[in-house]
């Protein structure tokens, strides 16, 4: 079991997500094997891996939408089965890009819907909620689009609105599933810059699944490489160093050799 610790004196309570020895099977086939992952408060972790590597499955496990066959998941130090503070976790799905674009809803209305669960049944928006919604929209740089219909915006702008929807319930952890799919190339950079600001200025822990490994290593603090197994889990700097040789192999076929490398690589064992 490999568990890489970031920093020296890490208090376990500072881990927002702890995944331990998790296996997930679907139709008799292992989708995820022996997964260990820990996300430290304040970090910006990117999970990378090829298509079908189990990235989205891992997100679903962390969100509690599916349960692992073996292993444990802890959120904010609490076992996931006992965890009841879902509002601490914001989620931006990949599907956000394929919603009904003709839907007649303003940016404000879409972001307000992020408060649905937190407010609870029968409660309507209060004045303070209106302020929060506007703040969330401004924090993703969409302040000038409050009353625009969501369908009139570009893919990148829409994705910002969906992030604002996740932010409005003031989460401590924001989970993003391939957020740049459907965002134009020239806007991807400013999109990552916005995520960086959320992470550094507002102290929101970010967990992002992506398959564009090129851009991420300079923006994120930690990287995890996944292809059924967890091949690498460490800081972005460490990731840069092994990138050329090993990462290409993760995407390739020679899996055995790589697992070997990993053990010899001298990462901290837990």
């Amino acid at each position: 079991m490999i568990l890489i610790l970031v920093g020296d004196n890490v208090n376990t309570n500072d881990y927002i997500v702890q995944v331990q020895d998790v296996y997930y099977r679907y139709d008799k086939e292992n989708v995820l094997e022996n997964i260990n992952l820990s996300i430290h408060r304040g970090s910006f972790l990117a999970i990378v891996g090829p298509n079908g590597s189990g990235k989205s499955t891992l997100l679903k496990l962390i969100l509690g939408l599916i349960k692992p066959q073996t292993g444990t998941i802890r959120l904010f130090g609490q076992d996931i089965n006992k965890f009841r503070e879902q509002h601490k976790i914001g989620f931006v799905s990949q599907k956000a890009n394929s919603f009904n674009t003709g839907f007649p809803a303003t940016v404000f209305e879409v972001v307000a819907s992020g408060l649905t669960k937190k407010l609870g049944l029968f409660h309507i928006l209060k004045k303070t909620d209106h302020v929060k919604i506007k703040q969330a929209i401004e924090s993703v740089g969409m302040g000038n689009f409050l009353d625009r219909n969501i369908g009139e915006l570009s893919g990148g702008q829409q994705q910002r609105v969906f992030i604002a929807r996740a932010l409005v319930s003031e989460p401590e952890l924001l989970i993003l599933d391939e957020p740049t799919v459907g965002v134009d190339v020239q806007n991807v950079n400013s999109f990552y810059e916005m995520l960086e600001t959320l992470n550094k200025k507002q102290g929101i822990t970010l967990l992002m699944v992506t398959h564009d490994i090129g851009t991420i290593s300079e923006k994120v603090t930690n990287v995890a490489c996944l292809n059924k197994n967890m091949y690498f889990h460490g800081s972005a700097d460490e990731f840069e160093q092994l990138q050329l040789n090993d990462v290409s192999e993760i995407y390739g076929h020679d899996v055995q050799v790589l697992t070997h490398d990993h053990h010899e690589g001298g990462h901290h064992h837990d």
Binding site: L65, S93, A96, F99, V110, S113, T116, K117, L121, R165
Partner: peptide, 20 residues
């Protein structure tokens, strides 16, 4: 009474389910 729930369910069923 159920306006915001009905809105969310209509707009984004998956997200509605994910938020419980």
């Amino acid at each position: 009474f159920l306006y915001k729930e009905l809105f969310l369910l209509s707009f984004d069923e998956e997200y509605a389910k994910a938020t419980g």
